[in-house]
Amino acid sequence: MDLRVKLPGLDLKNPVIPASGCAGYGRELAELYDLSLLGGIAVKSATAEERFGNPVPRIAETPAGMLNAIGLQNHGVDYIIEKEMPFLEQFDTCVLANVAGASEEEYIEVIRKMNTCNRVDAYELNISCPNVKHGGIGLGTDPALAANITRMAKEAADKPVYVKLSPNVTNIAEIALAVEEAGADGLVLINTLLGMRIDLKTGKPLLANLTGGLSGPAIKPVAVRMVYQCAKEVHIPIIGVGGISSAEDVLEFLNAGASAVEVGAANFADPYICPKIIEELPDVLKRYGYASVKEAVGRSLI
């Protein structure tokens, strides 16, 4: 079974990538399995300076999923290039560097610095984090702003740029088209859905940040719909993400038009989920009559 997927900057041996924020910079998962098994890894967001993130509690469970409001906590791009990325050199897997910021200038600063890091294969432009007040989702919910930051990122980047879009919009296809026209090499769909839980004992929101991003199986149908919706409109590749926890889920995203997938919250329920999905994927593809991953991509769209 041919699991290979060739995308701009990403020569994936299989379509499975742990999603940004769910696997740190790979160190923890590497204690459990060989990261070379993975198609790629999307590392935790980098900002220009260190960010301390939101107050705790940052995590709340929901039916078939969870809310998080980490707030892009990271040590800053310099530290990440120097201390975190070298760890990934020992593994034969693609690296997507997730880039975030509070202003357009900050995104560009992170990309310029990250250009010096050979371990990065492509950028994932995070214009969709729901847990920071400035930047992030503010840029991702307006087609003109999304196109503008994409254009700036493409000018600065010496590697392909994938734009990670927010589902918290009225018409995601409109944003997808805007960033495609601005030169994006691919899309990553979707980031988390904005949610809230109330603690009945206090009557107050359970998360210190009040709201958080919903992920897990609960959001899978929304993500599949948005991948399908965007795949109908754009001609650049889509990496699907949202509630994937089995090889069947992967096939569903491929059929909807994704060329590869990221697995997020499922890593918390089962830390071995990515290698398990990779192991099961050939049988599942075969069962539904495919000889390769490529064959399954976009079947729903025909």
Partner: peptide, 28 residues
């Protein structure tokens, strides 16, 4: 004790801070 997601230090869900503001993960 903390509300956790990954339990192994990857997600930054359960941090506490020291007196200088540096973060530590309760889980790992």
């Amino acid at each position: 004790e903390a509300r956790m997601a990954c339990g192994m230090g990857a997600c930054m869900g359960c941090v506490v801070k020291d007196h200088d503001g540096s973060s530590y993960r309760v889980c790992s």
